[in-house]
Amino acid sequence: MQRNQNPDNDVARSEWISDEQEVARLVEDFVSSDMFPPEIVDEAKTLHDSGHPYQALRVFLDSLD
């Protein structure tokens, strides 16, 4: 059985980003903003740079409480 491929669907799929990429992008945006104290930014950057973007995001979100 032959599969029909929709080129529009392939283009849309190639533009999707993973959840981890989106979280990493959010963390990078928070790092570059002036919304958080330096110690929060440093802790989040350390986690982000060591491959833990979800934990880095959690540091930022927890600091908002």
Rank of each mutant, 00 (worst) to 15 (best):
N4A: 03
E20T: 14
K45V: 12
A56T: 00
R13L: 13
Q5K: 10
M35W: 14
L57M: 07
A56W: 00
D29P: 08
N6F: 03
S63N: 06
A56I: 00
V59K: 12
M1W: 05
L57G: 00
N9L: 14
E28T: 11
R25C: 10
K45I: 14
D29V: 02
L47M: 04
E43F: 12
P37F: 15
P37C: 14
Q21R: 04
S50R: 05
Y54I: 04
G51I: 01
H48I: 03
M1S: 09
Q2P: 04
I40Y: 12
F60S: 01
D19S: 02
D29T: 09
H52D: 12
E39G: 14
P38N: 05
L47R: 02
D19V: 07
D29I: 02
N4Q: 07
V41A: 04
S18G: 02
E39Q: 15
L57Y: 12
D29W: 11
R3M: 04
L26R: 13
D34H: 14
N6A: 04
F36W: 06
V11A: 14
V31K: 11
E15I: 05
D42F: 08
H48A: 09
S33R: 09
R13P: 11
D19H: 06
S14N: 14
L26K: 12
L61N: 03
Q2T: 08
F30I: 05
Q55N: 04
E20H: 10
V23G: 05
I40R: 14
V11E: 08
W16E: 11
F30P: 02
V23W: 12
S32Q: 11
N9M: 14
D65H: 09
V23R: 07
W16M: 12
E22C: 05
F60N: 02
V27E: 01
I17Y: 06
R3V: 05
N4T: 08
I17G: 04
D8F: 03
L57I: 00
V41M: 02
F30A: 09
L61S: 03
V31Y: 03
L64N: 13
V23M: 07
E28G: 05
I40S: 13
H48D: 08
F60W: 01
A12W: 15
P53K: 01
L64R: 05
D10T: 15
D49Q: 06
D62L: 11
S32F: 07
A12T: 10
H48C: 07
P38G: 07
P38L: 06
N4Y: 07
E15D: 11
S32T: 15
S63C: 00
S50L: 01
V41I: 02
T46M: 08
E22S: 07
Q55W: 03
S14D: 10
D42H: 05
P38Y: 09
S50G: 00
D29N: 11
R13V: 13
W16R: 15
Q2E: 09
K45H: 10
S18D: 00
L61C: 00
F36Y: 07
R3H: 06
N4G: 13
Q21H: 05
L57S: 00
L61T: 07
E28M: 05
